[in-house]
Design a protein around this nucleic acid. Structure first.
Lengths: 344, 344
DNA sequence: TTGTAGGCGTTATCAT
DNA sequence: ATGATAACGCCTACAA
């Protein structure tokens, strides 16, 4: 229970008959300390098991070397890839991470933001909850000029960097693909268009329809939380539309898969009776039969980019401003849930 | 870019013509400070936007109020439930979390442990990587009596609390269920039995076989990393066994599902030709057709228990020692991949 | 009930 | 190339 006494730079200094200041400088590899002294010090560090005290250092430096991360959920392949990407960069740059999940609730998101603020994170990486409708819970960060970067699920805000894919174009590709396979009535399942993710996916969907002169009906838009259960309910709605749709573009794979399963159970054939395209290339897209066509983009890369961008801003290494928008690449993976394109 | 000046207890004190000590005490709701003074102080806190400085506090207190968490991967439903459970308790008790993933690598696990050690976490919650074969990378914690709690994937070590389910009994139930459905040759797919998770599941599997006088063949044990790809390969192995097995007990759902898919593609019927039971009740178990029977236990609860146990130890609230083993409940969920029990 | 003062470990500034 | 010292913000024995 009792903690062993910690070794400090004073202990090192005393043992070597030099000043703590010299030790401190040697530890940071200061150029004006002799090689010999440095060697002596580093040897003693190992011997005595010295470890630097982050708190003293942070107190002194007024920096925490800590990045806060808020994500809606950790439990998707995509998000854990993002986290892995962030981690990789952060570890490398000796930044710490405090990761929290909002569980898709704006309230929890605000609570997390407050906690991270009180922890004095140097910067924030955020992917917004479904129902977040405004960003005032980040005001304390904005006021203090603490950089906040939004990724994937973002919201326009002056002075914040956004990192995301071109959702409009991805959705356009997805929908167009369904049309090219012969679908005449295409439903879009998505979340409330509060954030640009869903706004843009809807926009891309409509764009594709328009391009092929397919009129858009309000009935073809199903709004829910994109959960597995929501997918089951969506299937019931779709079944009762008349004429029955023959294509569905869903804004995530989980919901798409649940919807497919339900329709299959009701006897519909996929993709012959009704074809599907999902979003995010989740592992379930390879488990469902037929395999789900989906939009793929790299979470790992997105995490890396976000962390690198934030850190290089923090260290002043680069002079990029924080109002950029970074658009990443995405692609449509064609699988059997939509009929593959014929190679002509 | 420039950070606004932070408000300190000195600023509050000066403004109210009282001493910083009084402010400090009021802030922690010390009983011997008058209500009036407290009120004045708290009002000013709001007005001036004071926030306490964790670093100064920690430096002074030699405590961090931070818990380190190391998990193999974040990207499973189970793990994110665990994290959510930990978070809930930690937030409640005003502890911070530093979460890291080992990506199933002992090396990364050791690196993470070192980082967390240098961050002076007050305690550690760990679920081990597949290939972790010994715990020496936690020695620095043990030496300093910093509590380390292992959960789910654990390894025997004197003086550490383990929180887990009875894997032997769960595996026994799973295997017995297959036998009762009429399976005569049952394969077990698992990871290297380095940790008790896999050791015990193997043990339970063998126990069930023994009870029903089914001899155990080495050939019936397939060892891999339990990934999706491993599941595909396992299917190839199974197909070539002779006589072909008619039951498979897999130590995780992802691998089980991949194996099922592959065998289905080859024309085998599930469960008629070959039945399956998985482990962990991952969402994919409800996507595969037929739905996968699996062992279910609550990740959220496991996280809660782990965090609560650690924190009450840290705060000295309870005097429980740290060498306990906590066994949680688990259950078999019967779905169509194994034939359901007939209700007689 | 409140105040005084020293110290937690580090680093930047100024001096040597 | 190295040393002395003050300061970062907070807490707590000890005093009053």
């Amino acid at each position: 229970m009792s903690a062993t006494k910690e070794v400090t730079i004073y202990d090192l200094a005393k043992k070597l008959n030099i000043s703590p200041a010299t030790v401190s400088r040697a530890l940071k590899d200061h150029p004006r300390i002799s090689k010999k002294t440095k060697k002596k010090i580093f040897d003693l560090v190992d011997e005595m098991g010295y470890r630097s005290n982050h708190f003293a250092r942070n107190l002194r430096n007024q920096k925490t070397k800590t990045i806060g991360v808020i994500v809606p959920r950790l439990n998707s392949n995509f998000m854990s890839a993002v986290i892995a990407g962030i981690e990789q960069v952060a570890n490398n740059e000796e930044y710490n991470l405090i990761i929290s999940q909002s569980s898709e609730s704006e309230t929890k998101e605000a609570a997390n933001a407050k906690i991270l603020f009180n922890n004095r994170v140097d910067g924030l990486l955020v992917s917004l909850a479904y129902n977040t409708s405004e960003l005032s819970h980040f005001d304390s960060f904005f006021k203090k000029n603490i950089p906040v970067i939004f990724f994937d699920r973002v919201m326009d805000h002056r002075g914040c960097t956004n990192i995301l894919i071109d959702n409009t174009s991805a959705a356009y590709k997805a929908t167009k693909h369904l049309i090219e396979q012969g679908c005449k009535r295409i439903v879009h399942i998505s979340a409330l268009p509060k954030q640009n993710v869903y706004v843009d996916r809807l926009k891309g969907y409509k764009q594709a329809l328009a391009e092929f002169d397919i009129p858009f009906h309000e009935d073809d838009l199903i709004i829910n939380s994109l959960s597995f259960e929501d997918g089951i309910q969506a299937a019931e709605i779709i079944k009762n539309l008349s004429p029955m749709p023959d294509g569905v573009f869903v804004a995530n794979d989980t919901c798409a898969v649940a919807c497919m399963l339900t329709l299959k159970q009701e006897g519909f054939r996929i993709p012959e009776d009704i074809a599907f395209v999902g979003f995010n290339n989740d592992p379930v897209s390879r488990v469902i039969e037929p395999n789900l066509s989906t939009i793929n983009y790299s979470g790992h890369e997105m995490g890396e980019i976000a962390a690198r961008y934030l850190i290089s801003h923090l260290t002043g290494t680069s002079n990029m401003d924080m109002t950029n928008t970074i658009i990443m690449r995405s692609e449509l993976i064609e699988r059997d849930s939509s009929r593959k394109k014929k190679t002509v």
